[in-house]
Amino acid sequence: MNIFRLLRRRHTAQVAHDRLRILLAHERSRTANTDLVAILRSEVLAAVAKYIPVAIDQVDVNMDRSETLSTLQIDIHIPV
């Protein structure tokens, strides 16, 4: 019993380390994108709005990053 407890205790710092690495990788990519997405959103909207009336809440900008592929998706809902 004591040995099990000892083994388990040895791991808490390692668990903390692994959890942090995963969490921070996720948070860094998200915060790094926030500004870019906001800029793209406003500039794309401005460009489209020159020709077609669109509402600001009718534009969706999404960015996805994976290890091999990043995608930028822009959806603009144009009134009929």
Binding site: R9, R10, A13, A16, L20
Partner: peptide, 12 residues
């Protein structure tokens, strides 16, 4: 093993 080591924090 109960506290993050210096190398862990520096690496992260």
């Amino acid at each position: 093993g109960d506290m993050l080591q210096i190398e862990d924090i520096v690496e992260i």
